[in-house]
Design a protein around this nucleic acid. Structure first.
Lengths: 213, 213
DNA sequence: CCAAAAGTGTTGATCCTACACCCATGT
DNA sequence: ACATGGGTGTAGGATCAACACTTTTGG
């Protein structure tokens, strides 16, 4: 069933850089392409915009299809429109970044992908298309947003300790914060509310916090 | 000559919120639509992406066609993709903001537009499509960027006084700055270089500055 | 000599940084 | 008891907001 237009139209797709924390380190979700072009290469998950679908919804849908989870946080990164970026046809890619809490890791490769896998940022393979550039921009965007702290909640469970929050902050922004000062910053930002519960380990229990109001 | 695809493709367009300063106040460039839909209504300039054209280049080209000038500064704002936003067909709009120095005002309405006109922000007409929302987002984006000061150079002549710069800062961000502190901020930012020339008025001459490095 | 805008010094309050220290729990 | 991470107080420096003042031109 062909679709015909009076003027040339590009295809429009979303690509999503999905991040999570595993063992304190930031990881990105990649899929191994199961079809040409770039068969066998690793790429960001993504797919084409459906008729009557918003771009945001397209990103959320693709993420659900590829990973089986709903994105906690979805942020626009940039558009990629270089004419030759896809060898098949003209494709405008709308790039997003998504954050997932470390827990929900039920990866399931779908039909388009041979497999899906988390990669630590230090061990990235070569990526298909211009996805290397997209990922780099996504990392910049994430780091900039993370300085507001509250986007980091999306990487953590609903209740978290301040040390967990600081660990996420450091993993995402790169620079490491001084404990006392980090806590004062969080306090003045007012973005967390303390709960009555505590996390237990082989040391003094840590108070659990949750996202404020 | 029809263009046929296997899957449905949306049309892709750029819309540009073009700002300038006139008599110290921020103005936006609007065109009166010469064709249906929304014939006679005011709208942001913009147009469809050409084959083998980057999105940025599309915005620059449309701006040149509609106003006859090259944008000093072009910044992405957001994508607008609500399915019903254009009554004719599915159109994804990639919104930009552009800044022009107040001088270059040789407006010339082109074929699509009955006329082009600068509007002060306090006297906006009702806009076609979702252009009201696009303009609001563009103003947010502009205000956020203006706090870095250097984007403001695009609103001023190549050489400008610090008072002009401060006027631009206040017009764009809304809040007004204290003269002494504004100058100290500019100095520590290091984004301007002083020249040997002065601007003359009926008062003490003001040193002219230019963008640094 | 006066108006009008250019340009500068200073001070008190505030914020940030870099420490050092105590606390509560599991083993 | 001690190792481990949780949690706080504070002094000094840097930064910032709000003033009041002098300077230089045109009329």
């Amino acid at each position: 069933m062909p679709f015909t237009y009076e003027h040339p139209h590009p295809a429009v797709a979303t690509d999503i850089a999905v991040f999570t924390l595993r063992r304190g380190a930031l990881h990105v979700l990649l899929i191994e392409r199961g079809a040409e072009p770039f068969r066998g290469a690793w790429a960001l998950p993504g797919g084409f915009l459906q008729p009557d679908e918003e771009l945001d919804d397209c990103a959320r849908r693709e993420l659900m299809e590829e990973t089986g989870v709903a994105a906690e946080l979805l942020l626009p990164v940039a558009n990629f429109s270089a004419p030759g970026r896809d060898p098949r046809e003209r494709v405008i890619s709308v790039a997003y970044l998504a954050l997932l809490p470390s827990d929900e890791l039920k990866l399931q490769a779908d039909t388009d992908a041979a497999q899906a896998k988390w990669f630590p940022l230090a061990e990235l393979p070569k990526l298909a298309f211009d996805h290397g550039a997209i990922l780099a921009r996504a990392l910049d965007t994430l780091s900039a947003h993370a300085r507001q702290v509250s986007p980091l909640f999306a990487l953590l469970p609903p209740r978290f300790t301040l040390s967990q929050l600081q660990g996420a902050y450091e993993a995402v922004t790169g620079d490491d914060a001084e404990k006392r000062n980090f806590r004062k910053m969080v306090a003045t930002l007012g973005c967390v509310r303390e709960t009555e519960d505590f996390a237990h380990g082989s040391h003094r229990p840590a108070r659990l916090y949750e996202a404020a109001a």
